[in-house]
Design a protein around this nucleic acid. Structure first.
Lengths: 187, 187
DNA sequence: CTTAAAACTAATCAATTGATTAGAAATAAA
DNA sequence: TTTATTTCTAATCAATTGATTAGTTTTAAG
């Protein structure tokens, strides 16, 4: 009986994700989203409820993309060099298509700080923990390191990947490469 | 003849700076500013023109505060350890009064990316160049390093201080300390 | 004291925001 | 074809935004 949806929800989330990635949450209006997604505000509401939830869905999609990098990382876990390869892959992903948008996850952390929406915060934390587990796994390939050293180096890499996310938004590729190379001189 | 201003402009900028530091530019409304500054919107306009210019004045004030850290850094320039001391001073400044507000400069870089207002961008760039010069000066205490190494290490420290600024907004003090310590293991 | 100039108060402006509504259009089951 | 159901269009809602206005109060020079 019903009329059929003339858009694909997965496709329009992809567009929404791009707008949020480019502009951040607060600077993205429903009218901008409506235009880029090719559907009107009513349809956004019908499919996603509200702006906040559309943002959450966009972040989920972004996470599935990062998940592919994590999968490669996981499957190529042979120590420090594997972590470094992930750093380069992450930088390349953040800089794709010559855009300077940084990382949507890290942009969101920076935009909201500790006052982030509960579900958004949980998604980011979950991703961060997964990544830290991979850092730990690869650091432990060097069996001479004690647990405390591992813990401190995981913290170091966690903050370094945050710095890298920020850098991909505002720094040139030379500086980014220098940063990654130097970061792994210390491990 | 004229009526006398009942507020001190330097004092109300201090308040405005605090609000921008806490909330960022876009999330700070003139009504929030008016309330915190203790003067009404008309007076904000009379003293500072508009929101953008008040933000610029706030950033200038912030810079004068950072300048004190740079002064100490400059006066205690004895090599790597001096840079490390600056990192700790910077982290402490960003975390003052138990707030988790990060660094107003770095928050602003993250909020606007490359599409930052011209004057704001110039202020930030100027500060960044000054800081990088101090990094360079202290790295050169080790005379065995060639120019290319120095250049790369300056880039490393530049991005590392950015990452630290972000971290002071979202990470706990243990992680921050681990990060700083590890950062200087590599130099 | 008078008065001109500036600062103040409070209200309001147009524009934009996220969200919603009323009604028209489309579609598949009966 | 009819009809119930959903989608879609376009307009509109109240709230908030940055900015401005009209009118009052204060102040110091003359």
């Amino acid at each position: 009986m019903p009329r059929v949806k003339q858009y694909n929800e997965a496709e329009v989330i992809e567009s929404a994700m791009g707008v949020f990635w480019q502009n951040g949450y607060k600077s993205t209006s429903l009218r901008m989203l409506s235009k880029e997604m090719g559907i009107n505000q009513f349809s956004i509401n019908a499919s996603f409820g509200n702006k906040q939830n559309l943002f959450l869905e966009s972040l989920k999609l972004y996470r599935t993309k990062l998940q592919q990098l994590l999968k490669t990382f996981e499957e190529n876990s042979n120590g420090i060099e594997s972590i470094k390869n992930f750093f380069y892959a992450f930088a390349e992903f953040s800089n794709q298509n010559e855009y300077k948008r940084g990382c949507l996850m890290i942009n969101t952390m920076s935009e909201f700080g500790l006052e982030v929406d509960k579900e958004v915060g949980a998604l980011i934390s979950n991703y961060a923990e997964q990544l830290k587990a991979l850092f730990k796994k690869n650091l432990e390939f060097n069996t001479t390191k004690d647990n405390d050293t591992i813990k401190r180096q995981v913290n170091y890499l966690d903050l370094a990947i945050g710095g890298l996310g920020l850098a991909t938004k505002v720094k040139d590729n030379t500086a980014i490469e220098d940063y990654i190379e130097m970061t792994f001189n210390n491990l």
